[in-house]
Simulated assay, not measured.
Amino acid sequence: MFLSVILLWTALVFLTTAPSSRVMALAPQTLYARRHQQQQQLRFTTSTSTSKSTTRIPSSNYYNNRRSRNEYSSSTTTSTAKATTTTTQLASAKILPIAYTGASGILLYKAIVLKTAASSSRLVLIAISLLSLFNFSTSDNARIKSAKIAYNEKTYPSSSGKEKQRRQAAITYRFAVRVKIIGQFLGLIRMILSKSTVGFMRGGAIIMSSQLLYFFVGGGSSNHDNEGNWKPLSDKAVTSVLCIDAILVTAALIAASASVASDTTTKLFTITSGLFAFGSFIGSLEGIPQFIKAIKSRTN
């Protein structure tokens, strides 16, 4: 049983982190662009030094050739920089799926082998394990890549106008995504290191609190799509998500305080922990389509 679980999670780590064919194709293209750029710069330098050593006035053809070389060199440099940036972003994006998948596997392992945990605690561990695998590993990966594109490529520093608003939205979104990811990892680590039901539920509360904090710092109004375009969420959508996350945080905290064994607290713990696990299961189900899409894009 344990061996099958380990093999399953090893396969998931490989699938969620294996580079796609597009990434593999970028490397030789980038290398070719760099070599071609160096050759063009060498030719241009030789031509410029030769023209400076002569005393005759350059003809109009020389200026035309020089202008075309400059334009070509500039376009080559831009394409090379974009290819290098894309490769770097895709390479750095492997870290999150590995971390979330690893945390998911550890939580599932704890749910299986932890004999002292109640059935409700096992349910919470399994729910967060699935949430980390199917939702966090893909959605946060897409968010952090979108934030990088918005900040590095789609916007630039400006002092006024719409460009300033777009730039500020990109900065806010990048900060909100980082806050969300850090909070989720703190909660996952708390659950992994804990050996008691109180620690499990407090870790779950930290995870859901990071969702609230994401919107409190402006993640909804500064939301960007996968292409790095600024597309803020509506106030109605933000309010509904905040209400759901607030209910889950409250349920986790109540379950943590009601984990002491007694007739009344046991019933309260069962209800609140079950509510928290149910909300986490819903979140994992919402992330399955994007997870499958990410797997297909890496296997093609």
Rank of each mutant, 00 (worst) to 15 (best):
L123E: 03
I149E: 02
Y156N: 06
S119L: 14
I181E: 08
T138W: 00
F175H: 10
S146A: 14
Q168H: 07
Y109L: 15
Y151M: 11
A147E: 08
S137M: 03
V124I: 12
L114M: 09
A111W: 08
L133Q: 04
L133P: 06
S119T: 13
A169V: 02
K180L: 15
K162F: 03
E153A: 06
K115C: 04
T172N: 10
S139Q: 12
Y109S: 11
Y156V: 09
Y156K: 15
A117W: 15
R143F: 13
T138Y: 02
R174M: 07
G161C: 07
N152K: 10
R122W: 07
S132L: 10
F185K: 02
S119W: 11
I144E: 09
E163N: 08
I112R: 04
N135T: 00
S137L: 04
A176Y: 01
Y109T: 15
V124T: 11
L123R: 11
A169Y: 02
K164S: 14
R122D: 03
T116D: 15
A117T: 08
V113Q: 05
Q184K: 05
Q165D: 13
S160C: 05
L131M: 07
R166L: 15
K180T: 01
A111L: 03
K164C: 03
S129L: 04
Y173K: 02
S158K: 13
S160K: 14
I126E: 02
R174K: 14
I126P: 00
T138V: 15
I149K: 12
S120W: 10
V124R: 01
L131V: 01
V179N: 05
G183F: 02
S159E: 12
R174S: 14
L125M: 13
E153Y: 01
A170D: 06
L114F: 03
Y109M: 09
K110N: 06
A169W: 01
F136A: 05
A169F: 03
K145A: 06
N152S: 10
A127D: 04
I128R: 00
K145Q: 13
K115N: 13
A117G: 08
A176G: 08
R174C: 05
L133M: 08
K154N: 14
S120E: 14
V177L: 11
S139F: 05
L130M: 10
L133Y: 09
F185E: 04
L114N: 09
S120L: 02
K154R: 15
S159H: 11
S129R: 01
P157A: 10
I144N: 04
Q165N: 10
S146W: 10
K145W: 01
K110R: 13
S120V: 13
I144F: 07
Y156D: 03
S129N: 04
S121W: 04
A142E: 12
V113A: 02
R122Y: 01
A147G: 05
A111R: 05
Y151A: 12
Y109E: 01
Y109A: 11
L123Y: 03
V179A: 14
I181H: 07
N135Y: 15
R178S: 07
I126C: 06
E153D: 08
K145M: 13
A127E: 05
A170F: 12
